[in-house]
Design a protein around this nucleic acid. Sequence first.
DNA 1: CGTTTAATTGAAAGCAGTCAAACTATGTGG
DNA 2: CCACATAGTTTGACTGCTTTCAATTAAACG
Lengths: 251, 251
Amino acid sequence: MHRHHRPSPRHSLAILVANLEARAPLDEGDRAALLSLPHSRRTMSPSAYIVRDGEVPGPCAVLLSGFAYRQKVTSDGARQIVSIHLPGEMLDLQHLHLDCADHSVQALTEVEIAYVPRQTLREVMAERPGIGRAVGVASAVEASIAREWMLNIGRRDARTRLAHLLCEFAMRLERLDLSGDYGYELPVTQEWLGDALGLTPVHVNRMIRALAEEGLIARHHRAIRFPDWPAMRDVAGFSEQYLHFGAQVAV
Amino acid sequence: MHRHHRPSPRHSLAILVANLEARAPLDEGDRAALLSLPHSRRTMSPSAYIVRDGEVPGPCAVLLSGFAYRQKVTSDGARQIVSIHLPGEMLDLQHLHLDCADHSVQALTEVEIAYVPRQTLREVMAERPGIGRAVGVASAVEASIAREWMLNIGRRDARTRLAHLLCEFAMRLERLDLSGDYGYELPVTQEWLGDALGLTPVHVNRMIRALAEEGLIARHHRAIRFPDWPAMRDVAGFSEQYLHFGAQVAV
DNA sequence: CGTTTAATTGAAAGCAGTCAAACTATGTGG
DNA sequence: CCACATAGTTTGACTGCTTTCAATTAAACG
């Protein structure tokens, strides 16, 4: 039922290689180096901390299955979700080079994590340009998504903002074959959505039903479908360019 | 090639070296490699495009003097400023590994830019781990600031949001000795501020005067001072941890 | 100067937030 | 299997922060 819990078939880190390789070329040596990275595997429950704000970053976490998210909190206790992560993504790129975590990373669903020693990872990146490049691409894409979120939160009204986020999830999940027919399971509460969008849960609820009444989304519990995807895209003003799908050719 | 221990301040790229070195250690070879990067220098006027959304990225731009900013635009034409950049910063880190620009970078003031060929920069990063690491740190700090902006836009009210942005500028400028006594010249219109904060220019104006009436800021044209910095920090809920000032020690 | 751009102010409207309560789904222990 | 507890969703009424619209004043500029 939860396809995002599917473990990677042959090797733990195969999903990382696949994720990196989707955008940047890796040679045989790069692949072998990545797959032979020392790591320990661990399963964690929803809302468990993977990285904790203010602490010294530990080993680098790679998400093997399940979803994770990043969040920050104001001095008043208000929370902002700043990103969501899908299987194959590295959760510590942001802290790999920093000596103090500036935000928290938590499990959204039950997750499997591979922990790779920071130093080893840095060495491999330094020794193999292909890997350094691939990690650079992954990092740049993450930054691009962050910028789009800023635009979303700062400059779109609530309904459009929600629609845009739902479109992004749809595209990203579909790319990993974690959804079918533009429909997917969204394992979050409306409060979580509000914290990702800079809205209150009450208003998120109203916008969800507004979209539903317009026939732009169809829900069943927390599963969501898009009966009219073109219309949905249009309402959201969505363009996937910022996701940089596809190989990034060297120029 | 000079063999001085310290680069001449007259060298164009010395400010880049200083910026990188402030957070990550560079050895003599790293410094020399950076300073001898081939580059062309150019002066640009306010609002000139350094990178244009949708285009194939050109050579990598390093900001030598003046300020620059990044922006994105919704399909409806609403603008969001997503970052501001100070002298010494690299403006194309985000596009160094991507084949299509997902946002625009523009000059805020009159700026001097050094253009370094992408391929050369990538080669130097691959060959010299110290440089690769330093660029990684710079990139991570930029991402951290982006996350704080998301939190700011999404979860703080207008007055606090403005105060926070002003505090960030103060800290970053002071670090470069571009301000005195927590006071500085902010060369932006209120409309620009609004686009950076997700607010309308009218409301920015009201919040500015609200802060002024409370004695938290003092203005003279576009120069700004903080008569009571501790109170200002407090109102903004500002903590500079996310700026990652200081050397990032390897762990 | 005259022209343009930016800052300021007021009044009114509206989107989103707040508060409170009811409802639903899910899970637990008896 | 039911009673109960808990977490999450839904709804309504009301408030208020921010926007919108419009006009005026001030500053920057050629």
